[in-house]
Amino acid sequence: MKMIKKRHLSFREIAPNMVTSGNLLCGMLSLILSFHGKYVPAAWLVFFAVFFDFMDGRVARSLGGGSQFGMEFDSLADVVSFGVAPAFLMYVTSLQGFAGVTGGLVVCFFALCGALRLARFNVVHVPGPFQGLPIPAGGLFLASFVIAGFSLPSYVAAALAVTTGVLMISSVPYGNLKGLRKGNSNKKKFFFLGFVALALIVTLHTSAPLAAISIYVVSGLLHFDWGKWLSLQEEDPLKERV
């Protein structure tokens, strides 16, 4: 009988998945807090999940420990933190009891679109802008209404959830910042964005996250490429000869 040799995973392979676990933990805690009526902390946990979602890729690249397993695990965590958790939060705050089971169907549609968006990204992702609104942005968009303290009418909340879901599975191009590195990013534009973010926080307070994520959502509809705008553009060789 042939024995299967066990393979021990190295730290560089485990570390990124440990960070991804933080993403999943935030999503689960957000669901628990929503269930207990702690809506604002639940919404902030969706934002905290973005930190872990961003860092797991950075850790994987720095350690050279990225794997197919890690990519699949990251997608599963994203479904919970940016699909199910924001959908449930929107349901309990604005859509519970809306037109019978319609409110429940609406948030199920949002979560389903998020899962489809991730599956498509894993299979057909190509370099350049994202095709469709990324699921973290979709989840943050819904959660930011709770942080802002807006009491949305049920029909408005339903329209927002459905529209956001449609944008996730659409082919609308959205700026991709993953290709930016220290050597190819425009520092002046990053400082400008930092100044704008600070101004939003000072002037809008708890509505600042909603304003920021709304700008990103609208930018895709306008075909504005944030990745291209923030990168250092190479000089046209024809211009150098003039």
Rank of each mutant, 00 (worst) to 15 (best):
K6D: 13
K6N: 15
M18D: 00
T20H: 08
N23F: 02
C26W: 01
C26S: 10
L31C: 03
F35Q: 14
H36T: 10
K38T: 04
V40H: 04
A43D: 12
F52M: 05
D53F: 04
A60D: 03
S62M: 15
G65F: 06
G70N: 07
F73C: 11
V84R: 00
F88I: 13
M90L: 15
T93G: 11
T93N: 15
L95P: 12
L105I: 05
F110N: 14
F110I: 13
A111Y: 14
L112I: 05
A115C: 07
R117P: 06
P129Y: 05
F130P: 03
I135L: 09
F141A: 09
A143E: 00
A143M: 03
A157M: 09
A159W: 02
V166I: 15
I169C: 06
S171V: 10
S171H: 11
P173S: 10
L177P: 00
L177N: 00
F191E: 05
F191W: 08
F192P: 01
F192R: 05
G194Y: 07
F195W: 09
V196T: 11
A197I: 14
L198G: 14
S207N: 09
A211W: 01
Y216A: 15
V217Q: 09
V217A: 10
S219R: 14
L222P: 14
D225M: 14
W229L: 13
L232N: 03
P237Y: 10
